[in-house]
């Protein structure tokens, strides 16, 4: 039995997350993956923005930095570049990472700086009461889309890959052992790594989709029934994949990492004017 108490600020519990929320599941997965790396707690900096998921750093016993909405990756970039010895992990919701933080997201990908971003992707702004986010499915009802969401949603993995991230995985809060593995590989990957975790928010999102879900368990069942492992997805047509989400390690390449390049620059400038 994994002892979470050694990695939690136990006195800060219980957490703020609602019954049926996946964030606790993903936090535990993240802690198991971190434990597997063997990193010392003093050497880990966990950074977040604003939102339900962004409260996570308050509960974990690392150096923790709860920043402003959308800005976690920029703070994390400063921490990492200033002190490359730190393992810097960013936790972020879909609104935080992809809407207000979208610019920082694509540039962190492009820079390939050695950070790991976990996107707690529940497709809604939960903390403010269920407004539609960049990953709310088309047609879903939301507090600011009472007649149904008119906007198409981002594919987080495609966005990350297209922008230059060197490791991209997608899991869900239902497929937990796989998620442990994706997060561990993301943490130990050199370069910018993104794990898109498909989750559900019953309280502010699920309840409003009367024809889709009866309860929060239905939202977990939706994850179970609609996740398609990458190998299988490669045998399927786009039509067959419609409404599903592809899981697995979707992208894993080596490309020079930003901080390494900077350290090499400093080294090359030593010993006088060049």
């Amino acid at each position: 039995m994994f002892d979470y108490s050694t990695m939690l600020r136990n006195e800060k519990l219980p957490h703020i997350w609602c019954p049926g929320c996946g964030h606790g599941i993903v936090m535990k997965s993240l802690l198991r993956a971190i434990a597997k790396t063997g990193w010392g707690k003093d050497d880990i900096v966990m950074v977040s923005g604003i939102g339900c998921a962004s409260r996570l750093p308050g509960y974990v016993d690392f150096n923790t930095l709860h920043t402003a909405h959308g800005r976690a990756l920029s703070f994390a970039t400063g921490v990492k570049l200033s002190q490359p010895k730190f393992h810097v992990i960013v936790v972020s919701g879909d609104g935080d990472a992809l809407a207000i933080g979208g610019n920082h997201f694509i540039h962190a990908c492009r820079r390939n700086i050695d950070l790991t971003l976990i996107v707690f992707n529940n497709g809604i702004y939960g903390m403010t009461g269920g407004q539609y986010s960049p990953t709310t499915p088309y047609g879903d009802k939301a507090a600011t889309a009472p007649h149904g969401n008119l906007e198409p949603d981002f594919n987080v993995a495609d966005l990350a890959k297209g922008a230059g991230a060197t490791f991209v995985a997608r899991g869900s809060s239902y497929h937990v052992p796989q998620l442990d593995d994706y997060i561990y590989k993301a943490l130990t990957h050199k370069g910018f790594s993104v794990v898109d975790v498909v989750e559900a928010c019953w309280t502010t999102h699920g309840r409003k989709q009367k024809t889709k879900y009866k309860n929060n368990l239905d939202m977990m069942k939706w994850q179970r029934d609609n996740a398609v492992p990458l190998a299988k997805a490669q045998t399927m047509s786009p039509e067959e994949l419609k409404g599903k989400f592809v899981t697995g390690i979707l992208h894993d390449v080596d490309r020079p990492e930003y901080v390494d390049r900077y350290e090499a620059l400093i080294e090359s400038l030593k010993g006088g004017d060049k």
Partner: peptide, 29 residues
Amino acid sequence: LPRRGGKFIQMEDEIASLGAVIGAALAGS
């Protein structure tokens, strides 16, 4: 800065610039 072992980064906007600055300052810079 790189000649002295320091770090310069051009961020994607001014918000990110100050974010990186604050992160670096918390790390000791």
